[in-house]
């Protein structure tokens, strides 16, 4: 519903409106300021930053910090691993969720009830940290790239969202194709999938963001395998190493900071934070329409 038109707006209503706008502007500032502050520091000359007082504009502008961090091979490799897991993980996740959703949207499918229940249970029951760890060890997934993408392939929530969307498509489309002799896979691939672009965009966004942002799996499964560490994990190491005391577990001194004597850890942290954040910043506003309807599809059905 659009906000009510201002007919016979009373003085109380006007006060309300102004207070509301002020409040919302405050929300904007509180949300945006930390990002702008970090951006400004990342673009500020490192020696000057130490003097303090940077708000949202750099004082001595430079790209030096970025040039420095990209000379550190751990970061560049982490970037590639992160990109790879995002692309592959999203692709796998989309294929599985859309196929499962299609079979569940077919009222005549024999195994529908079973599959549906089987998947919903996975949303509520989880084995927990250690049983999963032991399983991955037994499957020889520890210390490999595949530990990032294989466990997340099937996601019940995504299946439900796509399936809700498919339920809204006219069934007649499929029946006419069937009469023309198309098999179920062709119907899915040629007819249903192209119509599902909006919901697929939503799910792709969720999957990609999940992959890009995840760091704990790196910490737990690949922490001792530097060839597969991700960007988020590298950032986590830098942030934790210079924070007071660290988090208890992260005692290993950070080699990135020690390799770059001429810029301060502060500048390194801020520059990496921006590198990690920018891809998301670029993508999500364009998909807003899609993810809003996707979330609503997943939730309002009850």
């Amino acid at each position: 519903m659009a906000a009510p038109k201002a007919f016979n707006a009373t003085r109380g209503d006007k006060v309300f409106d102004i207070a509301n706008i002020v409040l919302m502007s405050l929300v904007l500032i509180v949300t945006l300021y930390p990002f702008l502050n970090v951006l400004a520091i990342s673009l500020n000359e490192s020696g000057d930053t130490v003097r303090g007082g940077i708000t949202i504009f750099p004082r001595v502008f430079t790209f030096e910090n970025y040039q420095q961090i990209f000379q550190y091979e751990g970061l560049v490799r982490g970037l590639w691993v992160s990109i790879a897991r995002t692309v592959i993980g999203t692709l796998f996740g989309l294929i599985s969720a859309s196929m499962l959703a299609y079979t569940l949207s077919r009222p005549d499918f024999q195994a529908r009830k079973f599959t549906s229940t089987f998947l919903v249970v996975t949303m509520y029951v989880s084995g927990g940290l250690i049983p999963v760890y032991i399983l991955f060890r037994d499957l020889d997934l520890l210390g490999t790239f595949w530990v990032y993408v294989l466990p997340t392939v099937v996601n019940a929530f995504n299946v439900i969202v796509i399936r809700s969307f498919m339920d809204g498509l006219p069934y007649a489309l499929q029946e006419s194709a069937k009469l023309d002799g198309a098999n179920d896979f062709t119907i899915f691939w040629k007819i249903i999938l192209p119509l599902c672009k909006p919901v697929l965009a939503t799910i792709a966004l969720f999957l990609a963001v999940g992959q890009w942002n995840s760091w704990f799996d790196t910490y737990l499964y690949n922490g001792r395998h530097p060839e597969w560490t991700t960007l988020q994990f590298e950032l986590m190491k830098v942030l934790q190493s210079t924070q007071q005391g660290g988090s208890g577990q992260m005692v290993n001194a950070n080699d990135m900071a020690s390799k770059m004597q001429n810029i301060s850890p502060e500048s390194i942290k801020m520059a990496i934070t921006i590198v990690v954040t920018v891809p998301i910043l670029i993508v999500y506003p364009f998909l807003q329409k899609y993810f809003v309807s996707g979330m609503t599809l997943g939730a309002v059905k009850s």
């Binding site: 599985s96 599959t115 989880s126």
Partner: peptide, 19 residues
Amino acid sequence: MSLPFVIWAFVFSYLPLWG
């Protein structure tokens, strides 16, 4: 289209319960 993923979910979501 569904069976491979059902098996997949079994491995990654149900097997840990055995743990």
